[in-house]
Design a protein around this nucleic acid. Structure first.
Lengths: 247, 247
DNA sequence: GTTATACATATCATCCTACAACTTGAAACC
DNA sequence: GGTTTCAAGTTGTAGGATGATATGTATAAC
């Protein structure tokens, strides 16, 4: 029996737990922007940890632009617009319809980027995308290797846009979805049987080879809607059908 | 041998400087995924700081999913796909064509979200958007208050999609652009005279009121292309004209 | 009474030592 | 040879000490 998830299963370190607690307090509005955090000593007493732990926790919040520490005064809560990073934690991901929302965001990003990739891809890009497709085609079920190939396929398309930010954002969103599905599989083994639809991927690839932006966008849109359905997520009535025309 | 940590402009705290140094080493590929970071003691000697400072720096990297620390062994560098956060620093933003790329990403996100907002907005959303528009209209130049209203206008549209992730992503991208422009204004006062085009905003608003997704998308696309041009950024040949059609 | 200076206090920033928890590899033992 | 034990190295946590910075207060000067 492999312990592949040993790292995920381990108890999180104290600084992370303190940071998560404060972070939730800020997000929920218990701590308004402009207000002062409790002092490091108060926090260390409240949580029963050393000030070092509290400082590491606050260092994370500060790096994310959630608080601003000022020597001699304290740490102020900053406004949400001033965040320096985007972070999605697994807990909130499993709440309510957040999975649908994440798929919707993914659809927006990937549909358009597929069109851009169709215009800008060169042969090296196509080869990399084809390689991922071949790795994926070996499996009919969504097993680990196949999932990796699936993600790589999408990342390579994002890379073919030539825009590193698009690549970063799409990689991030896809990875969040993958983690969330992986977690769901552990709590509900039935999800182990989710299929990957190779045909949808082939249609995307062919549109990229043909250099047809509209077709690539439509194929990508249809694919993501299909992928969402296969993991039990129904996308809200969307404009996907407009260009996708599918179903 | 001690390593000198660059302190450019504002004096950043030591942990931030150490984190930035390590982060750059990882991004540049000097430290490959899977490899081990130097020990905390080695780093503290190398930078001439205490181990506490090194630990706070590594805490940031760990929170971002760049490294994984394992007790008794060390901190491993993780693959770029495993990042838990998206972060854009101003230094890289000013390099090359990164500003264009960020505008392109913004265009993708906002065009589609404008269409979704046109379908899903309720009266409360329209009121909030209109309020931001009114605040903006008072000024012909892009002054601070006007910039805030401009950003608020876009954030309110993102909020009207009902998708918190879309709102988060758009807010983040817009804020990065604002900061970058703000910085450029300080180094080059000529950029002070960039105008905000109220008419473009009005057309977006009217499409939202009409509940016309295609018109909202086209108006938003035209607006962002225009905004990019006004700050001296020329978007690469894009598919914007395809749907924008009308003009 | 008003102002200005000096001081005490509170807080974050950094450094330091010490020990606990964990991993690894080598030495000792059977 | 195989197993156990132990020693060294590394991260995790605790706690104290000192420096840097902001703020309020009391004292002194005018």
């Amino acid at each position: 029996m492999k312990q592949r998830l040993a790292a995920i299963g381990t108890v999180e370190a104290l600084p992370h737990r303190v940071a998560a607690f404060l972070s939730r307090e800020i997000e929920s509005g218990d701590l308004n922007p402009g207000s002062l955090l409790p002092t490091e000593q108060q926090l260390s007493e409240k949580f029963g940890v050393s000030r070092n732990v509290v400082r590491e926790a606050i260092a994370q919040l500060r790096a994310d632009g959630m608080v601003e520490a000022r020597q001699g005064i304290g740490s102020f809560v900053l406004a949400p617009e001033q965040r320096a990073a985007i972070r999605i934690d697994r807990e909130t991901l499993r709440e309510g319809q957040n999975m649908e929302r994440l798929f919707e965001l993914r659809c927006i990003l990937e549909a358009e980027s597929a069109a851009l990739a169709a215009e800008r891809r060169d042969q090296e890009h196509l080869d990399a995308i084809k390689a991922a497709l071949d790795r994926m085609s070996g499996e009919e079920r969504w097993e680990d290797g196949s999932i990796d190939a699936d993600l790589l396929f999408h990342r390579e398309i994002a890379r073919a846009t030539g825009n590193a930010y698009i690549h970063t954002f799409i990689s991030f969103v896809c990875e969040q979805i993958r983690r969330s599905i992986y977690y769901a599989r552990q709590t509900n083994p039935l999800h182990d049987l989710v299929e990957v639809n190779v045909g949808e991927h082939v249609r995307i690839y062919e549109a990229l080879v043909a250099g047809d932006p509209a077709a690539a966008e439509a194929a990508m849109r249809a694919h993501i809607i299909g992928a969402a359905n296969r993991v039990g997520v129904k996308l809200p009535h969307s404009r996907g059908e407009r260009t996708g025309g599918g179903k």
